[in-house]
Design a binder for these strands. Sequence first.
DNA 1: GTGTTGACAATCA
DNA 2: CTGATTGCCAACA
Length: 103
Amino acid sequence: MTEIDDYSSRVLDVVDAIPAGRVMSYGDVAEYLGAGGPRQVGRVLARYGGGAPWWRVIHANGTPAPGHDAVALAHYLAEGTPLRSATLPVRVDMPKARWRGAS
DNA sequence: GTGTTGACAATCA
DNA sequence: CTGATTGCCAACA
């Protein structure tokens, strides 16, 4: 049984709320929650991200998670995420794809 | 309690 | 782009 902490649950909830074609940076999620930090967000995704669209959570510079960049790229192409580079290093057009809670 | 590590971020060279 | 440095917060040995 996977018991998820309250903080992790909130992180997953925010990630799950990100619409297709949009992304949020680790720091943005942490700031949106108003708790923890970008490292804690990445930690939660690494542990419980298996059931959430973790590829929509990327670095502040627009690159996806290390080791999963190819998987993330496939999702970006399938969801129509605005990319600045469709080849590695994968870069998402942050100013356009960046999503903030409610528009 | 201390030191290291980590799916981070920002700045500088 | 690579590498180094500092700041940040939490988990782990």
